[in-house]
Amino acid sequence: MYRVALRVTGVDLDNDATLGALFEVLDDLTWMEIDGRTLAVLHTDGDPVASAVLAARQITAGLPGAKVEEVDQDLVGISDIAKRIGVTREAVRLWVDGRRGPGGFPPPVGSAGGGERGSVRFWRWASVSDWLRKYNLHDEEDALSAVQVAEVNAALLRVMTPMDFAWQEVSKGPLRIAQLKSSAANIASPGCGHTVLTFHYSAATAWHERLAAALASGDEHERDDDPAFR
């Protein structure tokens, strides 16, 4: 079974309305806050990419303003790695330095600190898990591989929010604005012609204001019945 932790923004887990929505429509996800990050964790036996995309759609539909950013990077240091796989810190340090084991330990993605005690290096757990699994040093079945993490993140970029769908609807075909009058005049010049369009700006902005109000209210009938949107 795969474990996929999705980083979500725009969600307040201390809000009663949000907690009610989580209980009613998103109860198959585990929610937590870690070091200022809000995570929605799903477990699946199926395709992790498809499951993550489905969860992201459910989150954005059930929690207005929420956005699923990416699979949580799950950064780990030497002590974290040692604790997760049940070995000593020194063993991990020797793997990292290439003085023991098969070599080729993944490079760190960053570091912090410095000074006399040196810096603390960090790795993405997915990359470390791939290396451990490759050499039969540890096999965590529910960990996504680095490739799967990249696939999920790429798929999440294509997940559309309700506002995306609304603008997609507006953008279909030519932009139709009732009461937006234009006049055109051909200006003759040797060998070519030009068209000058004069738009009534107030009519255009009024239409956009009415469209924004209709989208915000979610009233499909208002848009269908109003000739300005036909």
Rank of each mutant, 00 (worst) to 15 (best):
D12L: 04
R84F: 07
H208C: 07
N136K: 08
T60W: 06
D130K: 05
A52C: 00
Q73H: 15
A56D: 01
A185C: 04
I34N: 10
R121G: 08
A61P: 13
F199H: 14
A185P: 03
S111A: 15
G62W: 07
A50L: 01
R37Q: 10
V53K: 03
E33H: 02
D225Q: 02
F165E: 09
V96I: 07
A150C: 11
G98T: 07
S183H: 10
V120R: 09
A204T: 00
E220L: 15
L13A: 04
A213T: 00
D47E: 11
A91V: 04
M1E: 00
G114D: 02
S129A: 15
E24Q: 13
E220F: 14
Q58F: 01
G173K: 10
L94N: 06
K172H: 08
I78N: 13
G77T: 13
A206M: 11
N186A: 12
I177F: 02
E90V: 12
G46S: 10
R124S: 13
H208F: 13
D80M: 05
V25H: 14
A216H: 01
T198L: 13
S217T: 07
V76S: 10
K181P: 08
A185I: 08
H200M: 07
Y2F: 01
L132D: 07
G10S: 00
I85E: 11
P64N: 07
V76F: 13
P108E: 10
T38R: 08
A5W: 02
E140T: 06
G101C: 05
G46V: 03
A188W: 10
R37A: 11
P64C: 06
S217N: 03
S145Q: 05
L26H: 08
K134S: 14
S189I: 15
Q58D: 02
V196T: 11
E24A: 14
L6S: 02
A21K: 14
A17H: 07
D12A: 08
A52P: 00
V92Q: 13
T205L: 10
E209I: 07
S189Y: 12
S127N: 14
E222N: 13
E220M: 14
L156F: 11
A112V: 09
I59M: 12
N153D: 15
A185L: 06
A52G: 00
D142I: 05
D28A: 05
V152T: 03
L29E: 03
A206H: 13
L54H: 03
W31Q: 05
D28W: 08
